[in-house]
Amino acid sequence: MLVGAFACAHTPQLLARPSTEDRDLVLRVHGAFARVKRRLETLRADAIAVVAGDHVEAFFLDAVPALGVYVGSECAGTFGRYRYRFPIHEPLARAVVEQGVERGFDLFYTQHAPLDYAFYVPLHFTMPEPGVPIVPLHVNVYLPPQPTPRRCYDWGRTLGEILQARPERVVLMASGGMSHFPGTDRYASPEFEYDRRLLDALKAGHGRELAAITGEELDKMGNIELRTWAVLLGAVGEARADVYCYEPSWHHGNAVVEWPV
C-alpha cells in the first residue's frame, strides 16, 4: 500500500556546499529533510519508490529511455567523495514494471546502471534508520523530447494503483525541482514566483493542474524536473500539499513537500 508521498529538492550543493551557497539556507533545507526522515520512520516504510530524473548519468545519448524502473538486486552511484549503494526491493520493482507494461505503459527496465545523484541526494538526508530498500523510477527530464507532463501524470496514476495493491508499506518520493536553469544564461534568475504560485495550487489540492502544463512551459520556467512531481501527483490525486520548506537560493528553488495519502 502507499503510505506516504514526498517531494524533495536534490541539488548537489545541498550535499557538497561551495562557498557560493548560503549556509543557513542549506541547513534549513537539511532541517526539512530531517522532518521527512522522521516521517519515514513513523510511517514504517518497507520501501521507498524514488521517482527521479536522470542527469545524463545512467543514460547518455546511446539510448534515451522515457519512463522506467530499475529492477536489480542493488544499485550504486558515486559523486566525488560520496559512495552510495542501496538494496532494491526487487519484488516491488518487478511488480511495477510488469504491471505497468501490462497496463499500457511501455516502460524500460535496467538491472545495472549508475545511480544518479537525483536519487541519492535526498536519500542521503532522509533514509530512515534502519534503512529500507528502494525502487528507483526513471523519468527523462534533461534530453528532449521528454515525456509530456500529462503522460507522467497518467503513469503516476497507474503507479499509485499498483503500489496501493501491494502488501508492502511504500513511500513514494519525487526528486527534483523547483525552478533552476543549470548551464544556461538563466542560471542566476530562476522563476521563483512561478514556483510559489504552483505551490499554492498544490496546497489547495490542485495537483491535476500540473498534468495540463506543457513541456514548453516547464522548460521556460526552469521546471523540466517537475515531471517527477507530475508522476507523484498522479498517484496522490487531489491531496493537499504540506510544504515543509521553500527556500529560493540565488539559482534554485529548493522545496520539500509532503502529501497525505
Binding site: 528532449p144 523530447p145 538563466r186 522548460d219
Partner: peptide
C-alpha cells in the same frame, strides 16, 4: 520543444 528552449534536442 523548439529552438528557443533552454534544453534543446542535442544535435
Amino acid at each position: 520543444m523548439n529552438e528557443t528552449s533552454h534544453y534543446r534536442f542535442p544535435p
